[in-house]
C-alpha cells in the first residue's frame, strides 16, 4: 500500500510542476536598463512566448514570477518587499543583471547591494545588461528547478526558513574603504 501512495503523490507533483513550469507569469519589476532587455525578451524577435511566460502582468496579484530588472535603491526596498508579499503562492524570483544581483557599479549609500539581501531569489542572471538569451536561459533554468524540486503544496518553500542571501552587510568598513573627503563633521565650519 505504501508503495502505491508514494507513487500517487509523486505523480501529482509532476503534473503540478509541469503546469507551473510551462506557464510562468512574470511580474516585470523593471527599474533600469535591464528592463529594456526584458521588454526585448518578451517581444517578437526573442519571443518569450515560446517558453510559456509571455503574459507580463503589472499587478503582483496575477503573477508568479518576479523579475527584478535593474538597480534597486534603498527607498524602493519596502515597495519591492510589498510587491513580493502580494504575489500569490507559488512564486519565484529572478534577479536580472549585475545591479539587482550585487549592486553592480553602484556602490553608493542609496543603492541596495543585491536584492537577495532582502528577498529570496531563485535564479541570478549576470550581465550588464544581460542579453535576452541569458534571460531566456534563466527562465529555462527556473523551469528546470520547478520540475525537479516543485511540490504540489509548496513544501519546498516552507523548508527555506533560513535566509538564502548574504547577510545584510553589517560589516564595518575600514577607513580605507570609506570613501569620503577628509574633514570632520563636527568641525565642518570653515570660519573658526
Amino acid at each position: 500500500m505504501a508503495m502505491t501512495a508514494d507513487f500517487f503523490i509523486s505523480k501529482l507533483d509532476y503534473v503540478a510542476n509541469f503546469i507551473r513550469a510551462n506557464s510562468l507569469w512574470p511580474m516585470p519589476f523593471a527599474t533600469a536598463c535591464c528592463g529594456i532587455e526584458l521588454m526585448a525578451t518578451a517581444s517578437s524577435r526573442y519571443d518569450l512566448a515560446r517558453f510559456g511566460s509571455e503574459v507580463m502582468r503589472f499587478s503582483p496579484r496575477q503573477c508568479d514570477l518576479m523579475i527584478v530588472a535593474g538597480r534597486v535603491v534603498m527607498k524602493m526596498v519596502p515597495v519591492m518587499q510589498r510587491i513580493w508579499l502580494q504575489m500569490p503562492e507559488p512564486k519565484w524570483c529572478i534577479s536580472m543583471g549585475a545591479c539587482a544581483s550585487s549592486g553592480g557599479v553602484f556602490d553608493t549609500y542609496a543603492v541596495v547591494q543585491g536584492i537577495d539581501r532582502f528577498i529570496p531569489v531563485d535564479v541570478y542572471v549576470p550581465g550588464c545588461p544581460p542579453r535576452p538569451e541569458q534571460l531566456i536561459a534563466a527562465i529555462l533554468d527556473l523551469q528546470d528547478k520547478i520540475r525537479k524540486t516543485g511540490t504540489l503544496f509548496g513544501k519546498e518553500f516552507q523548508e527555506r526558513t533560513t535566509f538564502d542571501g548574504p547577510a545584510p552587510l553589517h560589516l564595518e568598513l575600514n577607513q580605507a574603504e570609506i570613501v569620503t573627503a577628509p574633514g570632520s563633521y563636527e568641525s565642518s565650519t570653515r570660519l573658526q
Binding site: M74, V77, P78, Q81, W84, L85, K91, D107, T108, Y109, A110, V111, V112, Q113, R117, F118, I119, P120, F157, Q158, E159, R160, T161, T162, F163, D164, G165, P168, L169, H170, L173, E177, I178, V179, T180, A181, G183, S184, Y185, S188
Partner: peptide
C-alpha cells in the same frame, strides 16, 4: 545629508536597516 562632502560615499549603514524576508515567511 548625503551631498555633504563629509558624508561617506557608501553611507553610514543606512542601506542595511531593512527587514529581511525569508522564503518560508513570504
Amino acid at each position: 545629508f548625503p551631498l555633504r562632502k563629509d558624508y561617506p560615499l557608501r553611507g553610514k549603514h543606512e542601506r542595511h536597516n531593512f527587514p529581511v524576508i525569508t522564503r518560508a515567511e513570504s
